[in-house]
Design a protein around this nucleic acid. Structure first.
Lengths: 199, 199
DNA sequence: ACCTGAACACCGTTCAAGT
DNA sequence: ACCTGAACACCGTTCAAGT
């Protein structure tokens, strides 16, 4: 909190997004207000409109940042398993995804928010993260580990399963002890993955 | 809309829930207000507090009704496949689940809402729907169709996958042409299910 | 029992004005 | 450019009062 009357001097956009993530870590998106975010940053709430079109855009921008961070984590994890087969790499992908959802609940909650409208949106960071998954699935088909089905359909299948698991936990609709959550979800994902394999 | 000044005469609780479902069919939960629901029903917004503790409870009660309706649909579908094996029955389960989410987006949106707190809640209608899935999985293990793993873990795995698929669609984060949505999600679920099978 | 008048402390958002 | 004073039309919720 800053003394009022002073300018924010610095990256207000960054500060507002960071505070939003901080609040989202413990609360759902509809329970936080633009005014509260601005108040906590020490700025009049109308200052936010200089950086974001509206409340929804603020959260959408946070989600975008979150998807970028997730992609980075996914790639970092995969880089450590460069020599492994597709199954191993996808299990690593799942581990990184779930870990991200647990360690960054603020970002994750923004990322899984329902979209209010299906607008003609340009490809976003969420698509980029899904593209990583598609790439790995494609490798698995090329290596003969997976059956030669539609790549997008396979990727969407795995993506939706991870989304389902992590969002049930993030939305408090499924309780899994945090200490075992990664192992638990990985066993489930592993079984799901088995269904893709060549037999 | 009724002329103001008159009593609602009738089941106001039912009327408020029905209107909430109607609004949720096209809008997200945080975009509808208790005042709007009451206004559309032709009643002062404070009348709602006679029936629901607060706005959140209204939506939670709608969700509860939705889970009851879903359970009924699931059982009705399964009843038509009484003689089939567990795999077939679970595919029927998946079809009924996805169909419900598509035909009743208002109920479904209420059902998948994040919980605001993890309170010590009594077993609810959502647990009952999951219990149906557990029962079917148990049958599959008993018949030797599925490997003898932890029943709850297997059921949570399938449940989360259906939830992930249907909620991505309901939340407009995944677009699937409505005409092929059931077939599409069923293929994905079938693959996931394959991972549970004895080999 | 069921409903509302009046009121409170909040929202998101806009416009015109300050530095 | 970046920020705010004043204002508007909304919220959710409570309390005391009407039929």
């Amino acid at each position: 909190m800053k003394p009022s009357g002073a300018y924010h001097h610095g990256d207000l956009e960054r500060a507002l997004k960071t505070e939003t993530v901080r609040l989202l870590a413990t609360t759902e998106a509809d329970a936080i207000s633009l005014r509260e975010v601005a108040r906590n940053v020490g700025v009049d709430h109308r200052a936010a409109y200089r950086h974001f079109a509206d409340r929804e855009t603020l959260i959408a921008d946070v989600a975008e940042d979150g998807y970028c961070a997730l992609s980075a984590q996914l790639e970092a994890g995969l880089a450590k398993h460069a020599e492994e087969g597709a199954v191993h790499r996808l299990l690593q992908f799942a581990r990184a995804y779930v870990q991200f959802s647990l360690k960054e609940p603020g970002y994750y909650r923004a990322m899984i928010r329902p979209r209010l409208v299906d607008k003609d949106r340009p490809a976003d960071a969420g698509d980029a993260a899904l593209a990583i998954l598609e790439r790995e699935v494609r490798k698995g088909i090329a290596s003969g580990e997976f059956a030669d089905d539609d790549v997008t359909e396979l990727a969407v299948g795995l993506w939706s399963h991870l989304h389902g698991l992590a969002s049930l936990i993030a939305g408090r609709r499924l309780y899994v002890k945090p200490s075992i959550a990664v192992a638990y979800t990985n066993r489930i994902f592993e079984r799901s993955l088995r269904g893709l394999q060549q037999r």
